[in-house]
């Protein structure tokens, strides 16, 4: 035989019809003999009715309003820049956004092509590289003249040979302290002379 303390725990589910069939029968038999538990059940029933009436009176938001509220809360959160950018582009509806993005990409590629890849640009850079050579030290000697000393020990020498030379030298490094450079006036043959040091 169930005690009141056990039955009282099942009164709430009994009222809501959530008990198993044999439990429902047991509670019902107990209630028929126990006025205390019957009173308790009446109280539960009264509380349930009051709650349902309160819920009916309250004004709950519609699903659309709820969604908009959630959306507004999300917008207030600080998003990473990538997601913000993606939202901006997604906001541009359909083909307009795609077309604009494509134009930006194509323009960037065109600018890169013009400034980095075209032969004109290449020639421009080449001419800039060659320009300093004109200001470098020049050596003009004739055959039979003593060759001029150009490079000192472990010091790079930047030299250029005269106009009719077969060679233009932009860098000359040697550990030998007296390196000479000259070119023949007849055919422009350039000579680099590295005299060995006496031991």
């Amino acid at each position: 035989m169930a005690e009141c303390s056990e039955i009282s725990l099942m009164l709430g589910p009994f009222e809501d019809g959530e008990l198993e069939p044999h439990e429902m029968q047991e509670v019902a038999r107990h209630l028929a003999r126990c006025p205390n538990c019957e009173n308790l059940l009446q109280e539960y029933a009264a509380i349930g009715r009051q709650l349902r009436s309160l819920a009916a009176e309250a004004t709950l938001p519609t699903s659309e309003e709820f969604a908009m509220g959630v959306d507004a809360r999300i917008r207030k959160l600080r998003l990473p820049w990538r997601e913000r950018l993606a939202l901006v582009f997604d906001g541009w509806s359909g083909q307009f956004g795609a077309a604009l993005g494509s134009m930006v990409v194509a323009a960037s590629a065109a600018i890169l092509t013009v400034f980095l890849m075209t032969p004109l640009t290449r020639n421009y850079f080449n001419s800039n590289r060659q320009a300093p050579a004109t200001s470098l030290a020049r050596v003009e000697t004739t055959v039979g003249e003593q060759p001029q000393q150009l490079a000192s020990a472990e010091t790079p020498a930047a030299v250029s040979t005269p106009g009719n030379s077969q060679a233009i030298i932009s860098r000359l490094e040697s550990n030998i302290p007296s390196v000479a450079l000259w070119s023949a006036p007849q055919d422009g043959t350039t000579v680099i002379w590295l005299p060995e040091q006496q031991q």
Partner: peptide, 23 residues
Amino acid sequence: ARPLMTTDLKLKNHGVLIVGGPR
């Protein structure tokens, strides 16, 4: 294994450069 001379140059196509001096 010891470098005697290092140079960067532009030589005319079919041109000749002469390096001399070592004994």
